[in-house]
Write a protein that binds this DNA or RNA. Sequence first.
DNA 1: GTATTGACTTGTC
DNA 2: AGACAAGCCAATA
Length: 98
Amino acid sequence: MDEVFKQQVYEVARLIPIGRVSTYGAIAKAVGYPNHSRRVGKAMGGCPEDVPAHRVISSSGVLSVPEFQSRLEAEGISIENLRIKNFKNLFWDPLEEI
DNA sequence: GTATTGACTTGTC
DNA sequence: AGACAAGCCAATA
């Protein structure tokens, strides 16, 4: 596993504002690897505690890790049956920020 | 070496 | 809306 890739993924993940979410694909694309969404997921699996992994979800707006639901709700994000409500509004695209 | 799996995405039906 | 298939790439078996 490329350590640089992981670090970049963590870096972008840390930029996600509180109360917003992003997706694996968007982050993969942001770090220069458009089709490596799966690698992002793998990388997040071993992410440090300071990385808000719960704000990174699938592009369909569904939680890949149900355990994070409570964390998201704690930030004011509404969730219904693992699906983010207002996902369209809450989605944060790294490419429009950097 | 191949096969399977997975915190994925997109397109089709 | 829900289900399927194809494409993707690294880790694991």
